[in-house]
Amino acid sequence: MSSNTADTDTASSPQPAAPKTTKGAPAARAPRHAAKAPQQHQPARQRKTHPVLERLFELYPRLFGARFLPLKLGVFEDLLTLHPDDFKREDLKIALGLHARSTRYLEAVAAGKQRHDLNGEPVEPVAPEHVHHAILEVFRRRQARTNEDLRPQLRARLVEAIDASGLSREDYMLIVRSNDETANAVLDEAFAELGARNAKREALRRAFEASGRSVAEFAEMYGMDPAEVKRTLARAKPPSGTSDPA
């Protein structure tokens, strides 16, 4: 008898009475949405963090926490030496690879932040080519998520990266040029924009030197911000032997 419990409960349940209708009036219809079962939203799947990365966060929250910092070259061997019981070589290699390919880490590299050791101390600059390729990869990922043309933003970031590198066009192109025609086209645009910017800086420097005035006087004469004038003069390339503007 117990095997028929479900059938019995269903059969003995009171059935709803049919709605009364007035002669000539159409029978009431059930709401359209009543026939559809309510949709249940499935919770988004969360990627499980690699256990080695969780351990790295516990040991070095300044490097693997909410904010990422570029890691010094050779940090893999440092970790193996300092924590032989915590990490297996292959597991650590995989985890650090995941970390270095994450967008958050690439953004830190693209920003030109210094590389840091395990104590969280800056020890060396990130190579210009690493900054460049991180910028390209970050923008590729962003562009894939939007219909907005991010090319102008990419060009502006490349202008800043080239300027910060201190390299000539020839030297910079030598280390970053690739077979990606789109990336190379944006790079050419960035160099053209930087060339125009440097020409303006040089024109300002020449005008300043010809004026024989102080930075404050020169800025007031042309209605410019003295701090901005000084920054521009400092970033212009003065002839050798020229003193820093006061």
Rank of each mutant, 00 (worst) to 15 (best):
D9L: 08
K20S: 11
L79N: 05
R104I: 13
H132F: 07
E181M: 02
P51H: 04
Y172S: 05
L194D: 02
D78P: 04
Q39G: 10
V186G: 09
A27T: 05
G120I: 04
R62K: 15
L233G: 03
K88E: 15
L92P: 02
H130Q: 07
K113D: 15
P43A: 14
P26D: 12
A199L: 10
A236E: 03
R104W: 14
L187P: 04
V138F: 00
I94A: 01
R213C: 02
R206P: 02
T5E: 11
S3D: 15
S2E: 11
Q15I: 12
E137G: 05
D163E: 10
R169Y: 05
F64T: 00
M1E: 06
A35N: 10
E220T: 11
Q40D: 11
L92Y: 08
T21L: 11
A246N: 05
P122C: 09
V215F: 12
F139I: 04
L80E: 07
N198H: 14
A127V: 08
A66W: 07
N184I: 01
D91R: 03
Q40F: 13
V229L: 06
G166Y: 03
R62D: 15
L80D: 03
L98M: 14
D188F: 07
R115A: 07
A35D: 14
P239W: 00
R151W: 03
P128D: 03
A35P: 01
A207S: 11
R104L: 15
D7W: 00
V186C: 11
L73W: 14
N147K: 14
Y172H: 06
T49R: 08
Q15C: 10
T81H: 13
D91H: 05
K237P: 09
Q40R: 13
A134D: 05
P26Y: 01
Q40N: 08
V126M: 06
L73M: 09
N147R: 14
V123R: 11
A95V: 10
R101L: 09
R201Q: 08
A190R: 04
L82R: 10
R213E: 07
S13I: 04
S240T: 02
E170Q: 12
T81S: 15
D86H: 03
T8R: 08
G166Q: 01
D85R: 12
E160H: 05
A161Q: 09
E181V: 00
D7T: 11
V176D: 01
Y172A: 05
K72L: 09
A66I: 01
L98C: 07
T242P: 15
H99F: 11
V52K: 00
N147M: 12
E148N: 10
M173A: 05
P152G: 02
P19W: 02
A219S: 03
Q15F: 08
A25S: 12
I94W: 12
L96I: 09
H132Y: 09
E193L: 14
E189Y: 04
R45Q: 13
E90Y: 06
D91L: 02
A246L: 08
Q143T: 00
G223T: 10
M224S: 06
L73F: 14
D225T: 12
A110N: 08
K72E: 14
F68I: 04
T146I: 07
L63K: 05
S12Y: 15
